[in-house]
């Protein structure tokens, strides 16, 4: 059930927390090229993100995962030859939400105002009232209902990242780019947030960049290892079971082991070259 109240700027407002089924497009990119200090990080790289699924991109630091994510998000200026198409043939601009490793909460805004930052920045009054209602519901869902008026500096790292997750969801974008969003959290908090993210982001087309094989094994419908210089992505691993997978289940641990093996192989190839 959804009702569109603000057709402008591609930011359709939907009453439910979940995006309507089928709204999230598949994304295909090819010819991606990014240079770092005159060396290509990757050149002619291609990647498919299936619709409404979470694709994990796993790889060592500095391999270019973040650059690829920024390229897709439109935060990096693409070079000629780069093609980025959505399966519904509509432009992606205005349909992508972004979550970074740091929570990027504004220290002068309280939890509720941070969660509704998008509507505030766009100056949409009606949308802001709506966003606040939904934010209160979502913040209750993630256990922060009694911290709505708290400033970010009074929250723990896990709480802050939960606010960032809510802020990402409030944007109601069908595509979500996540750049090591839980990298700075302790192990247990990380597992809790992975559960929350998997539940709340279900149905969206998600690219999750991570260097944690267990995170990929838990959350990815599809998992690529990105490695090499210039970097390439390997054939994806598609573990069975619905995310979030149990961190201690044999299947999850087997996936994690396979990912570790692929990462180690890639590192060995790198060391020889």
């Amino acid at each position: 059930m959804s009702s569109v109240t603000a057709p402008s700027e591609g930011a359709a407002l939907i009453q439910t927390a979940e995006p309507p089924p089928g709204a999230a497009p598949a994304i295909a990119l090819s010819g991606a090229h990014v240079d770092f200090e005159d060396q290509p990080l990757f050149d002619g790289l291609a990647l498919d993100l299936p619709a409404g699924r979470t694709t994990c991109l796993l790889g060592p630091s500095g391999v270019g995962k973040t650059s690829l994510l920024r390229l897709i998000a439109g935060l990096l200026e693409p070079l000629p030859g780069f093609r980025l198409v959505a399966s519904d043939d509509r432009p992606l601009a205005g349909r992508i939400a972004y979550m970074a490793q740091t929570d990027l909460l504004l220290p002068w805004l309280n939890v509720l105002d941070n969660a509704t930052l998008g509507a505030r920045l766009r100056g949409e009054r009606a949308a802001l009232a709506n966003a606040r209602r939904r934010a209160v519901a979502l913040l209750s869902d993630v256990g922060l209902v009694d911290r709505l008026a708290a400033r970010p500096d009074t929250l723990s790292g896990g709480m802050r990242q939960r606010v960032a997750l809510v802020r990402t969801l409030i944007e109601e974008r069908p595509v979500v780019m996540m750049d090591e969003p839980f990298g700075a959290l302790d192990a247990i908090t990380r597992l809790q947030l992975q559960d929350l993210a998997a539940r709340l982001l279900a149905g969206r087309t998600v690219l999750l960049v991570t260097h944690d094989p267990l995170e990929a094994a838990r959350l990815g419908h599809r998992i690529h290892v990105m490695a090499g210089k210039p970097a390439t992505v390997d054939a994806p691993l598609e573990p069975s079971g619905v995310p979030p997978r149990d961190a201690t289940a044999p299947g999850t641990l087997a996936t994690q082991a396979e990912l570790l093996r692929r990462l180690a192989d890639a590192a060995a190839v790198d060391a020889r070259s």
């Binding site: 700027e9 591609g10 930011a11 920024r70 998000a73 439109g74 935060l75 205005g94 992508i96 939400a97 972004y98 970074a100 740091t102 990027l104 504004l106 930052l117 998008g118 505030r120 920045l121 766009r122 100056g123 944007e171």
Partner: peptide, 22 residues
């Protein structure tokens, strides 16, 4: 923080909103 600017850009903030709110 360039991350704030990235976030604002993807949220569709106008240059004036970025200046006055961030």
């Amino acid at each position: 923080d360039p991350g704030w600017l990235d976030l604002a850009r993807l949220m569709g903030a106008s240059p004036a909103a970025v200046l006055f709110q961030i």
